[in-house]
């Protein structure tokens, strides 16, 4: 795509172009995606398609209040109770066509019909393939907490929602600082040991969990300087770690833990400290835009005596109202906190 005039924007990695593209006679701006590629995207972006891990990609857009801009529906795997808040936050998703097959391959004909201004994906190969077919495609990636902030800023620029993106970052920073201050003086001996895991796979599935457990004032038993995304463990590891708190990936696994005689001596089981990770637009234990709430929830769980003015339920209503532009009911708050199968 040819761009003749570009103005540097205030954000690093973003260039503005006040000229129409040769092909579409529409203003474009150049942004740099997570793969370091300079991509020309139209201004404004009114239609966006998400490809690959659709629910988590959608959650960023939903947090910018642009759910109606998503032109594709949820893929087959996400049409389950686990992802029900996607369509609660953006009801139009239920009627949109599916643009990817079970193997995440895009249905090009449907995608062409939808005429997205920009396509979001986490797969660079797919992005380059689609670009050769004329689509503007952004690669998004996040591994560390700061990557989530960079993604919000990038999407804030793309959707002309920079103020909202910065508001989100400010909010996140303030919330994390409040939790950080509250646990700063807690000695290691009073920090609970925590295992976040999926019993189905016997794994701690996400490196990020070590981070949010630490932020919330706990000690993740799987944090050992590893670089592997997930850690496979055995029942013997659980006995060795003997965590104070066990956080499982689905509510059904709580009962499974309590019924498993092999875990009957584990402190978390003895003290009835087994919980399911909450889930909203996306399960909170994963890398998600809802991560500040994960930290707050885990903090309230681990240090109820220090929670003070931080109220998880009230903060959830504030968070989803302010960023997702959705007023949660009390029942929905409870539903999210109980975890979703």
């Amino acid at each position: 795509m040819t761009v003749s005039l570009c103005l540097l924007a205030s954000l690093p990695g973003v260039e503005w172009c006040a000229c129409p593209s040769a092909a579409q006679a529409q203003s474009t701006r150049i942004v740099r995606d997570a793969a370091g590629r300079a991509v020309a995207v139209p201004v404004p972006v009114a239609r966006v398609a998400t490809l690959g891990p659709v629910p988590v990609l959608n959650s960023f857009i939903l947090a910018l209040g642009k759910g109606e801009a998503i032109v594709n529906g949820l893929p087959l795997f996400a049409r389950s109770p686990r992802h029900k808040y996607q369509t609660i936050f953006a009801p139009t998703l239920a009627e949109r066509p599916v643009i990817q097959g079970p193997g995440r391959e895009p249905d090009l004909e449907v995608l062409l019909t939808l005429r997205p201004d920009v396509v979001l994906t986490m797969d660079r190969g797919m992005a380059e393939s689609l670009e050769r077919k004329g689509f503007a495609v952004l690669v998004l990636a996040w591994r560390n907490p700061e990557d989530v902030a960079a993604t919000m800023l990038l999407l804030g620029t793309v959707f002309d929602r920079e103020r909202e993106a910065r508001d989100y970052l400010d909010y996140t920073g303030r919330l994390l600082a409040r939790v950080g201050d509250a646990v700063a003086d807690v000695p290691d001996s009073r920090r609970p040991t925590v295992l976040f895991c999926s019993l189905k796979t016997m794994t701690q599935p996400h490196l990020i969990a070590d981070w949010w457990i630490r932020q919330a004032g706990g000690i993740s038993v799987t944090e050992n300087g590893r670089h592997l995304e997930s850690v496979l463990f055995s029942m013997e590891h659980v006995l060795k770690w003997n965590p104070d708190i066990l956080i499982v990936s689905a509510p059904g696994e709580i009962d499974q833990v309590y019924r498993d005689t092999r875990m009957r001596t584990v402190k978390a089981v003895v003290n009835r400290q087994v919980y399911s990770i909450p889930a909203g637009a996306h399960p909170w234990g994963y890398r998600t835009v809802e991560q500040p709430l994960t930290v707050l929830w885990a903090f309230a769980l681990m240090h109820p005596d220090k929670a003070g003015g931080l109220n998880v339920k009230a903060e959830m209503k504030t968070f989803y109202g302010r960023f997702f532009q959705y007023s949660l009911t009390d029942a929905q708050v409870e539903d999210m906190l109980s975890g979703i199968p």
Binding site: L76, S80, T203, M235, Y286
Partner: peptide, 25 residues
């Protein structure tokens, strides 16, 4: 595997197909 939820079910299937004794009771 195509229709499995890639967040939850697919990893469980892949683990199963790798063979594991870590959860034998």
């Amino acid at each position: 595997k195509f229709v499995a939820d890639p967040y939850d079910q697919l990893p469980a299937i892949v683990m199963w197909l790798m063979g594991r004794l870590s959860n034998v009771d």
